[in-house]
Amino acid sequence: MADENENEKMDNENQKPEKMFTLKKWNAVAMWSWDVECDTCAICRVQVMDACLRCQAESKKDSYGKQDCVVVWGECNHSFHYCCMSLWVKQNNRCPLCQQEWSIQRMGK
């Protein structure tokens, strides 16, 4: 690979001596984010993939030392901590973000 580049570079240099720049190093940077509609729980304002404020306060931990606080997605695609949402739906069974009737699409991490 390096040799090929070297040869190419020399060829190029022979053909175009006026060239001012050669590419010596190329760093690729990748960005990622959680593939969910809303990455922060709008109720407690903690990332949905982290434990909710209530669980953090009670420091509930399972055997792996990971906090057992799952995410819930509604039919509207909005996501919240299951703990946060279960308290809210007791008084109003609507999505706090879009006001649609709340029904669970899936749960998990």
């Binding site: 407690c44 304002r45 903690v46 909710c52 404020l53 209530r54 953090q56 306060a57």
Partner: peptide, 14 residues
């Protein structure tokens, strides 16, 4: 520190 108080700290920060 209760969940309500923690949430209010976040509100204040924001």
């Amino acid at each position: 520190s209760t969940p309500a108080r923690r949430r209010l700290m976040r509100d204040f920060k924001r």
